[in-house]
Amino acid sequence: MVELTASAPFDAGMERTIGAVTLRAAETGPVTALMPYAGQERALSAALERAHGLEFPAAGRMTSAGQARCLWSGLDQAMLIGVEPDPALADHAAVVAQSDGWAALTLTGDAVADVLARLVPVDLRPAAFEQGASIRSELGHMMVILARTGPQQVTVMGFRSMAGTLLHELENAMTALAARPKG
């Protein structure tokens, strides 16, 4: 039987600093889509609370507890990240393992918003995209989840199959921004 070797979307420990932004490969741990069945939203949230200590997030929000985070990712959908899902969640929601489907990066630094402004058509000013926000939009032509994970830090999750393009787009934007004439 063929031995399959898992390969990460980015080189382990990848880190690039260009101008005022540092780009790092993010370790997500397990990624699980939770899609509550009709009428089961509250029950799912309660089950999440019991099992992992966090609630099912409201639209545009993220919840977290310890290693576990739950990122809203669309209509009736959130991504549970960092922990293996408790089997009891499946009583209230479709629970789908997606660990191999996603690639995540974090952007840190003063110019994070300026870099993302090159690629994402959404208002990412602090008042509109505050700490704890998790939104869905496009980055270039790719669909992504964007989560504000720190005052000057944003986590970007894109599809695993597009990881190279995601990295390329971000590096391109960072390079062009850093090369701008000052003043």
């Binding site: 058509p121 208002d123 390079t175 062009a176 850093a178 090369a179 701008r180 004439p181």
Partner: peptide, 21 residues
């Protein structure tokens, strides 16, 4: 016009098209 006034723009874009809301 980001770098049209420079002899050598380096990696900077010559121009940037802004969508301002």
């Amino acid at each position: 016009r980001v770098a049209l006034h420079l002899r050598d723009p380096g990696a900077a874009p010559l121009e940037c098209f802004w969508r301002i809301v």
